[in-house]
């Protein structure tokens, strides 16, 4: 990384989420001090009481927009940032926050709060890119620290960050894993974007799709494969919706193939 230029002003923000993606950055113990030497990290509520109104060169946002206040905040961040990066499943595909989509939100609120008149929350959770222009996305639930470092390094050196446009299966085969689909499991690896290094299948657990859809995902053939393995209609829907209920590439095809109105 070159250090001749002034350090870029970087901010980290969290909307509604579990903060796991910010934590993944804090967890880069080995690289953390080095990274901090190359950027000017001005806003990091989880780790610092210092605040900075912007403008920012790069702003990373984790979490979902769940109410008006958060929407306003996101729009301000967009205006104040040269580069805005959506970070994690909550911000890119809705993550688990979007499981509520298409369901009866009033009933949901009531079941949780009893009298829910003071609870103000959007019925639909959308990816951040549906609200404002997003320059880059980092996927995963949580993101991969390594991908974050690669991404930042590219930005700092003026290179275009590389997108992985292939599926988890590719990484899985490179690791010479036994395919879990052949063992009867329901794995979303064939239609999920690579980046995690096929983490789950390498540890005996089928992919749940947290990196979101790979470009040109063949959703129909995945649904057929699941059905052939005896998966119920419900189970297929739940598998697709766990991290991707707001990922249009999946939901459109799922809706068409299974003829589901509410999706």
């Amino acid at each position: 990384m070159s250090t001749g230029k002034p350090k870029p002003v970087v901010a980290l923000y969290g909307l509604t989420c579990c903060a796991g993606c910010q934590l993944e950055i804090l967890n880069l113990e080995d690289d953390l001090l080095d990274i901090l030497g190359h950027i000017n990290l001005v806003q990091f509520r989880m780790g610092s009481s210092a605040t900075h109104p912007g403008p920012y060169d790069v702003c990373f946002v984790e979490g979902s927009v769940t109410n008006e206040a958060e929407l306003t905040r996101l729009k301000e961040l967009r205006e104040n940032s040269k580069i805005l990066v959506a970070m994690g499943a909550c911000a890119t595909t809705g993550g688990v926050n979007a499981i509520r989509n298409g369901r009866n939100i009033e009933e949901f609120k009531q079941s949780v709060y009893g009298d829910a008149s003071h609870v103000n929350t959007f019925p639909q959770i959308l990816p951040l890119k549906s609200h404002v222009k997003i320059d880059y996305e980092l996927q995963g639930c949580p993101i991969s620290g390594q991908e974050f470092v690669e991404f930042l390094t590219a930005l700092l050196t003026g290179a275009e960050p590389r997108e992985k446009n292939y599926a988890v299966c590719v990484e899985c085969r490179m690791k010479e894993n036994v395919c879990l689909m052949k063992e009867g499991e329901l794995c979303l690896g064939p239609i999920t974007r690579a980046g995690c290094g096929a983490l789950c299948p390498s540890l005996g657990f089928p992919c749940e799709g947290c990196w979101g859809p790979v470009p040109q995902a063949n959703v129909e053939s995945e649904i057929d494969m699941f059905s052939q393995k005896g998966a119920s209609f419900d189970l297929v829907v739940r598998k697709f919706r766990m991290f991707n209920a707001s990922a249009e590439e999946f939901m459109k095809q799922l809706k068409r193939r299974l003829n589901i109105e509410w999706l």
Binding site: T16, R100, F108, S111, V112, L235
Partner: peptide, 24 residues
């Protein structure tokens, strides 16, 4: 903090899906 409604959207999920969702 914004509302997340975990207990509501968890309903109908399979018992073997609970831990990965609640982890979040």
């Amino acid at each position: 903090e914004g509302t997340r409604l975990f207990e509501a959207f968890l309903r109908d999920h399979g018992h073997n899906e609970v831990s990965h969702i609640m982890s979040r």
